[in-house]
Amino acid sequence: MAVYIVFDVETPNHANDRMSAIGITAIKDNKIVANYFSLVDPETHFDSFNTQLTGIDADKVKGAPNFAELWKKIEPIMSKGILVAHNAVFDMSVLRSCLRNYGITWKPSAEYLCTVQIGRRILPDMKHNLNVMCDHYGIALDHHKADSDAHACAEILLRYMESGVDVSGYVKKFVLSP
């Protein structure tokens, strides 16, 4: 049985190269086994759009770890399995940017799954926004809150697997370092 590390990041501004929050939900043996959340001090400015969307601003992240500090805690979790996100290219890109911006070498590439890409294949006649998928499956969601989004994405992945989808056929590699 594969281990899936489902994660979601929130960003402070339109550059999408830093994170202001991360939520992580781990799946092992087709069950959610752990949840993790942290605010992150992005050490950069916040755009009003992002603050309105996420509720996170400079005051909220005061005292939160920066990415390098947080990475020491989450790297063991992120290294345990296949990464999963809803619209994964976005979250994977933010992760890659944070690693590069802080000069952190992790690994050259990471295996990942995207619940949007899987959904488009198995449910082609639906919209695949996270809130739409949660409504479809009856999953609780506090949208644009990293912990809730990660947990909801994990629930969607579990629904796909419960319906018989072999998600291993959707695993891709994301280049993290040049």
Score class of each variant (00 low, 15 high):
residue 81 G to T: 11
residue 37 F to E: 11
residue 18 R to H: 14
residue 83 L to V: 02
residue 135 D to A: 10
residue 47 D to K: 08
residue 136 H to V: 01
residue 7 F to I: 04
residue 90 F to Q: 02
residue 4 Y to G: 07
residue 5 I to C: 02
residue 126 M to V: 04
residue 85 A to V: 09
residue 74 I to K: 03
residue 88 A to N: 04
residue 66 N to I: 04
residue 162 E to W: 03
residue 73 K to R: 09
residue 32 I to C: 07
residue 171 V to D: 00
residue 108 P to F: 00
residue 67 F to I: 01
residue 41 D to W: 05
residue 126 M to G: 00
residue 99 L to E: 13
residue 168 S to L: 06
residue 65 P to A: 13
residue 7 F to V: 03
residue 98 C to N: 15
residue 47 D to C: 06
residue 144 H to K: 12
residue 93 S to W: 03
residue 107 K to N: 05
residue 81 G to C: 10
residue 160 Y to K: 04
residue 89 V to W: 00
residue 68 A to D: 07
residue 157 L to D: 06
residue 90 F to W: 04
residue 70 L to W: 02
residue 8 D to S: 11
residue 158 L to N: 04
residue 157 L to V: 06
residue 5 I to T: 12
residue 19 M to P: 01
residue 30 N to G: 07
residue 109 S to G: 04
residue 174 F to T: 00
residue 17 D to F: 00
residue 89 V to I: 05
residue 167 V to I: 13
residue 61 V to N: 03
residue 148 S to C: 11
residue 148 S to Q: 10
residue 158 L to S: 06
residue 90 F to H: 08
residue 68 A to S: 13
residue 3 V to D: 08
residue 121 R to I: 08
residue 99 L to R: 09
residue 21 A to T: 03
residue 144 H to G: 06
residue 15 A to K: 15
residue 50 N to F: 13
residue 113 L to I: 07
residue 139 I to V: 12
residue 67 F to N: 06
residue 62 K to N: 11
residue 160 Y to D: 05
residue 175 V to A: 00
residue 23 G to M: 07
residue 146 A to S: 10
residue 77 I to L: 08
residue 161 M to Y: 07
residue 68 A to V: 03
residue 167 V to W: 03
residue 28 K to F: 03
residue 162 E to V: 00
residue 116 V to T: 06
residue 66 N to S: 09
residue 128 H to P: 01
residue 68 A to I: 02
residue 169 G to E: 10
residue 112 Y to T: 05
residue 11 T to C: 08
residue 166 D to L: 03
residue 113 L to H: 05
residue 155 E to N: 14
residue 156 I to W: 12
residue 140 A to T: 13
residue 155 E to T: 05
residue 3 V to W: 07
residue 145 K to S: 13
residue 145 K to C: 08
residue 82 I to C: 05
residue 164 G to D: 09
residue 4 Y to A: 04
residue 10 E to H: 11
residue 23 G to V: 07
residue 156 I to E: 11
residue 99 L to N: 08
residue 178 P to R: 12
residue 151 H to A: 13
residue 142 D to R: 14
residue 168 S to R: 10
residue 51 T to I: 12
residue 77 I to P: 01
residue 89 V to S: 02
residue 156 I to M: 10
residue 44 T to H: 07
residue 165 V to N: 02
residue 169 G to I: 04
residue 4 Y to N: 08
residue 39 L to F: 14
residue 96 R to H: 01
residue 55 G to V: 11
residue 170 Y to Q: 01
residue 94 V to A: 04
residue 149 D to G: 09
residue 89 V to M: 01
residue 122 I to T: 09
residue 74 I to P: 00
residue 10 E to A: 07
